[in-house]
Simulated assay, not measured.
Amino acid sequence: MDETKARKYVLAVVFIAPRDVHTIRSTLRGLRVPGSRSVHFHKANNTQRAAVIDALLEHGVIAMTITNRPHPRVPPREACIRALARQAIHLEAQAIVLERDQTIERSDRRWLFEELAKSTVLYEHRDRHEDALLWAADAIAWCWQHGGKWKDRVMPLIVHSIDAAADSAKPGPPA
């Protein structure tokens, strides 16, 4: 899962089957610029962006976007993280991996604990260089916000989009 806040708050979530995790991580690592520890779409050139999207399409990665309209009582990130947790339960996900940001990690953990307490879904924060799958979510988030041809390129990956403010626990994409 990754986020973008450029125009409105968007969480991009990628779903990877456990049997495909190693292959997709390896493919994405192979798309790094020599000497870099990760792929960051904001800093990538268009050739690298296209290669990452092509790899995601080739591997059949599916994704979901979670957006949130501003709400006076619930911050956008909280609403989206809670909606993500509910979707993870519904989809019987094994784990949620979030990109580490120490300034918000404590809040994330509280919201996830509250939502996932009675489930078997695990969650953890990792630095972006620790898990190449975070780059897939970064790609979806960047393309979604950037719009135009980039959004069009990732649309085949998006199987579900929800508005966290309107969604209490509606089912997500098929498991």
Rank of each mutant, 00 (worst) to 15 (best):
16 I>N: 05
17 A>S: 08
18 P>Q: 02
19 R>F: 04
19 R>W: 07
20 D>N: 13
20 D>M: 12
23 T>P: 00
25 R>S: 04
25 R>Q: 13
26 S>E: 12
28 L>I: 14
29 R>D: 12
29 R>K: 12
29 R>L: 06
29 R>P: 02
30 G>Q: 14
31 L>Y: 07
32 R>G: 05
33 V>W: 14
36 S>K: 15
38 S>L: 11
39 V>E: 01
40 H>D: 06
40 H>C: 05
43 K>T: 10
44 A>N: 03
46 N>C: 09
47 T>Q: 14
50 A>P: 03
51 A>V: 09
52 V>L: 08
52 V>M: 08
53 I>F: 02
53 I>R: 02
56 L>C: 08
57 L>P: 05
58 E>P: 00
60 G>C: 11
60 G>W: 00
61 V>W: 01
61 V>I: 14
66 I>L: 15
67 T>M: 02
68 N>W: 04
70 P>R: 09
71 H>A: 10
72 P>V: 08
76 P>C: 09
76 P>I: 04
79 A>C: 10
80 C>T: 08
82 R>D: 08
84 L>F: 11
84 L>N: 04
85 A>E: 08
86 R>C: 05
87 Q>S: 10
88 A>R: 02
88 A>T: 08
88 A>L: 07
96 I>T: 05
97 V>Y: 03
97 V>L: 08
97 V>K: 07
99 E>C: 13
103 T>W: 01
104 I>E: 11
105 E>Y: 03
105 E>R: 15
106 R>W: 03
108 D>L: 09
109 R>G: 05
109 R>Y: 05
110 R>G: 00
110 R>C: 01
111 W>M: 07
112 L>P: 01
112 L>Y: 12
115 E>G: 03
116 L>G: 03
116 L>I: 10
120 T>H: 14
121 V>E: 06
123 Y>K: 03
123 Y>E: 01
125 H>K: 07
125 H>M: 11
127 D>M: 12
128 R>W: 10
128 R>S: 15
128 R>G: 06
130 E>Y: 09
131 D>N: 09
133 L>Q: 05
134 L>W: 04
136 A>D: 06
136 A>R: 07
